Amino acid sequence: MKTSFKTIVISDVHLGTKGSKAKEISRFLKQYRCENLILNGDIIDGWQLKKSGSWKRKHTRFFNRILKMIEQSQTNVYYLRGNHDDFLEQILPLQIGRLHILTDMNYESFGKKYFITHGDVFDSITTNLRWIAYLGDVGYTFLLWLNRVVNYYRFKAGLPYYSLSQYIKSKIKKAISFIDDYETELAKMAKAKGCDGIICGHIHKAENRMIDGIHYLNSGDWVETMSALAEDHEGNWQLIYYREIDFRGIQAETQLTPFPLPEATIIPLRQVSFESRSDDDITPPTIRL
């Protein structure tokens, strides 16, 4: 049986790039049922698609999974614009059935109000100095390529996954300072809007903590961290990491037959791989749930 949540938030999938974990995010969403799914920006990487990116079948399958959630579970889907999928500005706002495409939104649940935004609007680099943002995107793309090479050989040597870009960011003082300032400014914005918390993405750093009385939540990314935010039916938020999910147990449970079979006809469970090693403002609408 699928685990049920009230709301799931994901961001920064970057479909159209080699680093996107499209298969993993589709597999992740297949394991859960939710009333609301919030796609908090940078789901499609329009920047890379204009350059060297490519659209593959696995990227289409992600949206097929979203459509199945709408059809089979009556999930409400909210797609918020990010900086890499800023082409959505041409059609905002748009609603088609249970699918809503927005700039940002207010989310109210269990007496608490959260402002949800991708987060790039608070980033002076991406809003005012776009050419620098593009240059930084090139550098990050190179890091992801190098990271795949490094982890290919680590996998061959039986070593666990290692995030080279996360290591570099943790060693550069300016990067650490930027992240701290980014999170603090977002918390200030939420307080100015009279909200109890803020939910964002953008910087690819998953987080769930209090900042000066504001609940700061960041869903992370699906390029390296492979994380999502989930709210249960009591209003509690948690971070879920793909690499920590017991897919073996899930598969075993779903393959159990309700009728006992003769001992001789029991088919053993086949083993599967559980980690992909592919080489490959504005006044926003208030959503009360």
Rank of each mutant, 00 (worst) to 15 (best):
Q90M: 09
D85P: 02
H202E: 01
K2I: 09
G46D: 09
W222N: 04
K23T: 14
E207F: 10
E185K: 13
L49R: 04
E35W: 09
D221N: 10
F274E: 13
K51D: 00
K171L: 15
I214G: 08
F63I: 05
L164R: 10
H14I: 06
F155I: 05
N208A: 13
L67C: 13
L80E: 03
P260M: 10
Y242L: 07
R65C: 06
H14S: 06
W131M: 06
M189K: 14
I25K: 03
L29H: 15
Q271A: 14
I287K: 15
V138E: 05
I96L: 12
D120K: 07
H233M: 10
F259V: 11
D42Q: 00
F274I: 14
K171T: 11
G119T: 06
T127E: 04
D221V: 01
D42C: 00
M226K: 11
F122T: 01
D123F: 05
F247R: 11
D212Q: 15
V9M: 05
F115K: 01
K50L: 02
Y78G: 09
D123N: 12
F110Q: 12
A22E: 04
N236E: 12
I10K: 00
L217M: 08
I43R: 03
Q31Y: 11
A22L: 05
K6C: 04
K169Q: 13
R288T: 14
I101P: 00
L261R: 15
I8R: 06
D12F: 06
A190I: 01
R248V: 13
N36E: 06
I211R: 04
D86G: 01
P284G: 12
F63C: 01
Q74L: 13
Y161K: 14
I43V: 09
A157W: 09
R209K: 15
I10C: 03
Y241W: 08
L102V: 00
T75G: 02
Q238Y: 02
Q95N: 11
L229G: 05
N218I: 00
I198K: 00
V13H: 02
L37K: 08
N76S: 08
V272L: 14
H233S: 10
I245V: 06
G139W: 00
W237C: 07
K6M: 04
I176E: 10
S227D: 02
A230E: 01
R248G: 07
L37R: 06
Y162V: 11
T265H: 10
I179N: 08
K56T: 03
Q95C: 06
A264P: 00
I203G: 03
M210Q: 10
A264E: 10
L92H: 07
P258W: 09
